[in-house]
Simulated assay, not measured.
Amino acid sequence: MLLCRYIPLLAAVVKQFIDFIPLILFFIVYKLEPRAVELAGQSFTLGGIFSATAVLIAASVVVYGTLLVLQRKLEKGQWLTLVACLLFGGLTLAFHSETFLKWKAPVVNWLFALAFAASHFIGDKPLIQRAMGHAIGLPPHIWTRLNLAWVVFFLICGFANLFVAFTFPSIWVDFKVFGSLGMTVLFLVGQGVFLARHAHDVDPKPTAETKE
């Protein structure tokens, strides 16, 4: 019974780590010493920001393409992440400037924050309730507070990535991966603690009002 209450949280954790797969591959390639490799009779440079960006784009297409085939759909957030990767990654390669890629994380996080904030005024449920309400029941004011917490989280992540990228350029890739991952893990743990505090308010069998 208790486990059922936290299935949505576990699903959110799994989803977050899936989203980090392309980023982790990006980090690995970025840290390699530049070297020439042969692939399909063509010579490529592997290592450094630009080859890492190409790997990020390819890995994102593979990961989200696989999810699309398996699930027959992608969530709006996953579409946003994929499109942002193609756009900012493509601009980075086209203009040979990492500045475009530095803006990817801030822009994506702020768009997520905007979407969560807008859901308070558009539609009949906060976005977090639409995502988790089918599996867990909470009073309306708790859903509102949880949704606002996601807004704040995405705003902080966006500004943190922007600050580090343009103030400490030597470590921005490290922060992009481990800083973002660390903030995500801490936030999800905090969300779990928040839900545990309100365990007496949780209805493990949501009523019709909590379902989409």
Rank of each mutant, 00 (worst) to 15 (best):
L148S: 10
I7H: 06
G123C: 10
I156G: 03
L32S: 11
V69Y: 13
I156C: 08
V69K: 11
L93C: 02
V62H: 06
T144G: 08
A12D: 10
C85I: 15
Q78M: 13
K104P: 01
S180C: 11
L114W: 12
V177P: 00
Q191G: 10
H200R: 14
L56S: 11
F153N: 02
S97T: 03
E212L: 12
A208H: 08
C157A: 14
G77I: 07
G47F: 03
V69Q: 05
A59T: 09
F159Y: 10
H198C: 09
D19E: 10
K76A: 15
F154C: 10
G133R: 03
L111Q: 04
A113H: 08
L70T: 12
N147D: 12
I21A: 11
P126V: 08
G47V: 03
V29P: 00
G158M: 02
F163Q: 08
V63N: 03
D201F: 02
S119I: 02
T184F: 02
H200N: 13
A135S: 15
L127P: 00
L67G: 09
A131K: 06
I21H: 05
F27C: 08
A52R: 00
G179T: 03
T207A: 14
S119Y: 01
H198D: 08
K15N: 12
R35I: 12
F121R: 13
M183E: 07
G190M: 06
E38V: 15
E75R: 12
D203H: 04
M1V: 11
R5P: 00
K76V: 14
V69P: 02
V14W: 07
A59H: 03
F187H: 09
K73Y: 10
F175C: 04
L93N: 01
P8M: 05
L10I: 14
E209M: 09
D203G: 01
L101E: 00
L155W: 06
I18F: 05
L10K: 07
D19I: 11
L2W: 10
A208W: 06
L127N: 00
I18Q: 06
T167S: 15
I18S: 05
P139W: 01
V152D: 08
S51G: 03
A199N: 13
F50N: 01
G179C: 04
H141E: 14
F168Y: 14
E212N: 10
R5T: 06
Q16M: 14
T144E: 12
L2R: 12
L87H: 03
M183G: 15
I171W: 11
Y64L: 12
L80E: 04
A52C: 04
H134G: 14
V14L: 15
A58G: 07
W143F: 05
I136W: 00
L195G: 00
K31T: 11
I57W: 01
F17E: 12
E33C: 04
L25H: 03
L188N: 07
L87N: 04
E33P: 02
L162D: 07
K15D: 15
W150P: 00
G158H: 01
V37G: 08
A105V: 10
H96G: 05
P140C: 06
V83P: 04
V152W: 07
H120D: 11
G47K: 05
I136G: 01
V173H: 01
Y6T: 03
A160S: 14
F50Y: 14
A94D: 02
